[in-house]
Nucleic acid binder design. Structure first.
Length: 251
DNA sequence: TAGGCCATCTGGTCCT
DNA sequence: AGGACCAGATGGCCTA
């Protein structure tokens, strides 16, 4: 209580020109340092031609200079933070384009979190699918992942190279067109909206390939249901449908 | 006009 | 001591 009051009073008593100067810097000289621009302060210049500066004046000027320096650093820090936020926005799905409103900071962070979670889930799903595709070999997916680049290195491992032998079997050559992992990479480039979040942005259509996977229509599908039915492409999923059932088959 | 978002200032705390 | 980081306060801008 007291600290707040003291804080408020100290703010209220701070020199008016400081705030005004900062506002000017923010609008007219964004990105440059405040110290350089605030040098010709009205307070200092008015004293320049006057009587000798007192010790108190010098002390106040020193504090003022320090305060401006600190403010400048803080501004730069926040600008850097905003640049990083912009960088994050650029790699977020549904965050670009002229008709898309800029994501707020909190929205960017929350979307990023869900995006990462979705990619992680997709990777797990991919492992399971690869395992299914190759006779249920339990070790395949993990070995495949170990050979490829890690997520932190740039994303989904590529399987365009011949696969390693699995449980003693001969290596199986795979092309990029029939490799489930490559197909999944394609998916991840196209579908990347976390379900259950940002409902207005949730326009993914197609079939859910598990509890964490959304698809676009017209994209090759390799889920077991569609493969079984001879379907190669998913059909559009009605908006707001959350039932994780393959609509291609209706099951 | 109210509410959301943002930039900035500021004082406090922690770390090197 | 100085810098980084943080949170609260404040005011401006924009939109529904």
């Amino acid at each position: 209580m007291d600290s707040d009051a003291g804080s408020l009073s100290s703010r209220a008593s701070s020199p008016e020109f400081e705030d005004g100067a900062a506002r000017f810097f923010a609008s007219e000289a964004f990105g440059s340092f405040c110290v350089e621009q605030s040098e010709p302060s009205s307070s200092s210049s008015s004293r320049a031609g006057g009587k000798a500066r007192t010790e108190k004046d010098r002390s106040e000027d020193g504090l003022q200079e320090l305060r401006l320096k600190v403010n400048s650093r803080e501004r730069k820090r926040m600008h850097d933070l905003n640049e990083a936020m912009d960088g994050l926005r650029q790699v977020m799905p549904y965050s670009q384009g002229p008709s898309v409103r800029k994501l707020s900071k909190i929205a960017t962070l929350m979307l990023a979190r869900n995006y990462i979670m979705m990619l992680t889930s997709s990777l797990e799903e991919m492992k399971r699918l690869v395992s299914d595709a190759y006779g249920g070999c339990q070790n395949f997916a993990s070995r495949c992942t170990q050979r490829g680049p890690t997520v932190s290195q740039g994303g989904i491992p590529s399987l365009t190279q011949p696969l390693p032998s699995v449980m003693g079997a001969a290596p199986v050559p795979l092309s990029s067109t029939n490799c489930p992992t490559s197909l999944l990479s394609g998916y991840l480039n196209l579908t990347s909206i976390p379900r259950g979040f940002f409902k207005d942005l949730q326009q993914s259509s197609g079939v859910y390939l598990g509890s964490s996977y959304g698809h676009l229509s017209g994209v090759p599908c390799f889920c077991s249901l569609c493969q079984h039915q001879g379907q190669q492409f998913h059909q559009p999923l009605p908006r707001s449908t959350t039932n994780p059932v393959c609509l291609t088959t209706g099951k």
